[in-house]
Write a protein that binds this DNA or RNA. Structure first.
Length: 635
DNA sequence: AGCACGCCGACT
DNA sequence: GTCGGCGTGCTC
């Protein structure tokens, strides 16, 4: 009998620590257990074992071991703990995304396997030779093993398959780690990038690739996770949760397009891949690569600090930014038609648009009032030219619409979506097939024949031989959005779409002027990222500072903000009303105050969870979101 | 969260 | 005198 120190699976912030239980000797660190806790049974993970406990009272006994597999590795526990502390959250909440649920069948098969660790692959050429070897010797401004890579656009333009050069280059770096017998973790925003990266990896490391994908079935996911537990020279690829993959000797951690919002975890404590990767790099000393076609302002900040060494690969394809004349908004400019016409005979042409459907917005033809859903007040739109208006939020179809303010029955279409753009292009190019790719119509690949591919941002299919031209439409509409990161997001979305083009392709960008247009023609992404970051500094917005949003009842929010305000280098914005009797404040703080702020926030969260249960003080519960990616959205 | 403990108001 | 309201604290 020994003592098992267990983290119990409870959302209560005050239980986010280890509790001791008596356990049999087969209960080893990392296994899942069920323990008696507060009068009932709770699942948990054994974090460590010891001969004795320093708890004063009588220890309960572990009820049973749920699985003998040590799924929580020490390095992942350390990571979860640090990530939770940084975000004023619970470590178990991190483990929920880090560790897939047990599946009996794959586990039985795994337990009966003959443990075979694959041989390391042969070393080969990579874009940053020696990067992985430098692990462990990372210091500010001296030979960093941490780099920000501006990836080379374009790809392998074979007629049957397209793999971006970025993927080939990351795969080469992964092979460097595997050749040393270490693991590589490569984190991508989406399964689109995952497909390319897996293809590139298989070309250089064969079957030493493990995909940890939330889209997999539960057994497949657990099977892949168990393969990662086995260790050895393997490359682990997956979306944001893969950053927590078990890898005892991690040689490389690479994040592709760290600025993509898909890297933001929507579950508490909301850590984004880049931040987790930075913590993991610090803990493991692995080489860290933050790569993308665009540079995030967060990466720019780390470059300016000298923590990341910037590396610029390749050169963007020729890009023509075109401003729009008055009254042209939403139209396809003549130059875009011209470019498409010249390129289409030779192969596919990509047209990127802002919104899906036919008409993304509708308004009353008589009074101009935006058409809204009678049920939920959501905006109405039209999916196809001949479709009835439907609500974008609840999906209700409004065949017989009447304006709520003037009673008018006629609608005008505002803007145009992918389907309408496709219709118009189809008329302009009568003999060319048109393919629509958006949230409703997923399309991952197109072949090398002439066609127009109309896609919303992030839904662009890969073209086997590379696109012959890319039209980036709706710039003015994208940039009209009210958000801290519009420009950064737009440049990233345009840069990634453009990278799907063949090297000799022409790129047309409509509705972008000034700094943003320049960003799309410059070779080096630094100038734009630096200018964006300078703006944020001037305004004291992230990532120049960090922010924590505090939502809840007015009294509670005020109390939390006051507690954090006692720390230096902080200030608060708000509170603003967010409905249902709740308010929101934004606490801004310098990076240097981060540890103290997170600590104070955590203390307030625990206090709110334990002391505020008197019937009078029971308002909306306080919720804290540290490093909200879009802190001012919806204000 | 649930559950135990503990201290003031109406009651058989 | 005590039964029970809920505020407070704890969960190995």
């Amino acid at each position: 009998m020994s003592v098992a120190r267990v983290v119990v699976e409870s959302r209560l912030p005050q239980l986010d620590r280890l509790f001791d239980f008596r356990a049999d000797d087969d209960v080893v660190p990392g296994v899942r257990v069920r323990v008696p806790f507060g009068g009932r049974m709770l699942p948990g993970f054994v974090v460590e074992t010891a001969a004795e406990s320093d708890f004063g009272g009588e220890l309960h006994r572990v009820e049973r071991m749920l699985s003998p597999v040590p799924v929580l590795r020490p390095e992942v526990w350390a990571l979860a703990r640090a990530v939770a502390d940084r975000a004023a959250g619970s470590a178990v909440d991190v483990l929920r995304v880090a560790i897939p649920g047990r599946q009996a069948r794959p586990e039985t098969a795994w337990l009966q396997r003959e443990a075979v660790v694959p041989a390391p692959p042969e070393p080969g050429e990579s874009i940053l030779p020696g990067l992985v070897e430098r692990r462990g010797r990372i210091a500010l401004r001296s030979e960093p093993g941490v780099v920000a890579v501006a990836a080379e656009p374009g790809g392998d333009a074979s007629a049957t398959r397209w793999v971006g050069r970025w993927a080939v280059e990351l795969a080469g770096l992964a092979r460097d780690a595997l050749a040393r017998g270490e693991q590589a973790i490569l984190v991508v925003p989406d399964h689109r990038e995952q497909r390319q990266l897996v293809a590139a990896l298989q070309a250089v490391v064969g079957d030493r690739v493990v995909e940890l994908d939330a889209r997999q079935s539960n057994p497949d996911r657990y099977r892949a996770f168990l393969r990662a537990i086995d260790g050895g020279p393997i490359a682990i690829v997956g979306p944001r949760s893969a950053v927590y993959a078990p890898a005892a000797s991690l040689g490389l951690l690479a994040v592709w397009e760290d600025g993509d919002p898909l890297h933001d975890e929507p579950l508490s404590p909301y850590a984004t891949t880049r931040d987790v990767a930075l913590v993991r790099q610090q803990q493991s000393g692995c080489a860290l690569v933050l790569a993308g076609h665009a540079r995030s302002t967060e990466v720019q900040r780390l470059v300016e600090l000298g923590f990341l060494e910037p590396v610029v690969r390749g050169r963007p394809p020729r890009t023509l930014p075109t401003a729009l004349q008055d009254g042209q908004a939403g139209r396809i400019p003549a130059i875009a038609f011209q470019v498409a016409k010249e390129a289409i005979a030779d192969g596919p042409v990509l047209v990127q648009v802002a919104r899906p459907g036919h008409a993304p917005a509708l308004a009353c033809a008589r009074c101009g009032e935006r058409a809204r859903c009678r049920r939920c007040q959501g905006p109405l739109r039209r999916a196809r030219a001949d479709a009835s208006p439907s609500c974008a939020w609840c999906g209700a179809v409004h065949a017989a619409w009447a304006c709520s303010s003037c009673g008018g029955r006629a609608l005008v279409e505002l803007g145009r979506g992918s389907v309408r753009t496709a219709d118009e292009l189809g008329r302009a190019f009568p003999n060319v097939p048109v393919v629509v790719a958006d949230g409703q119509h997923e399309r991952l690949e197109v072949d090398d024949r002439p066609m127009l591919v109309v896609a919303t941002r992030g839904a662009e299919p890969v073209a086997a031989g590379g696109y012959r031209a890319v039209l980036l439409l709706d710039g003015e509409r994208i940039l009209a959005r009210e958000s801290l990161r519009v420009a950064e997001d737009a440049v990233r979305a345009w840069s990634t779409a453009r990278a799907l083009a063949r090297d000799d392709a022409s790129i047309v960008l409509t509705g972008a002027v000034g700094r943003i247009a320049t960003a799309m023609t410059a070779r080096d992404p630094a100038a734009f990222a630096a200018a964006e970051l300078a703006d944020r500094r001037a305004l004291r917005f992230p990532p120049a500072v960090r922010v924590a949003s505090v939502v809840g009842g007015p009294d509670e929010v005020e109390r939390v903000v006051r507690a954090v305000g006692d720390i230096g280098a902080t200030d608060a914005l708000g509170p603003v009303d967010v409905g249902d009797g709740a308010v929101r404040s934004m606490v801004r703080f310098d990076y240097g105050a981060g540890v103290d702020v997170a600590h104070a926030l955590r203390a307030e969260i625990v206090r709110a969870a334990t002391q505020s249960r008197s019937r009078v003080a029971k308002g909306a519960p306080v919720r804290v979101h540290v490093d909200d990616h879009e802190p001012f959205e919806g204000i």
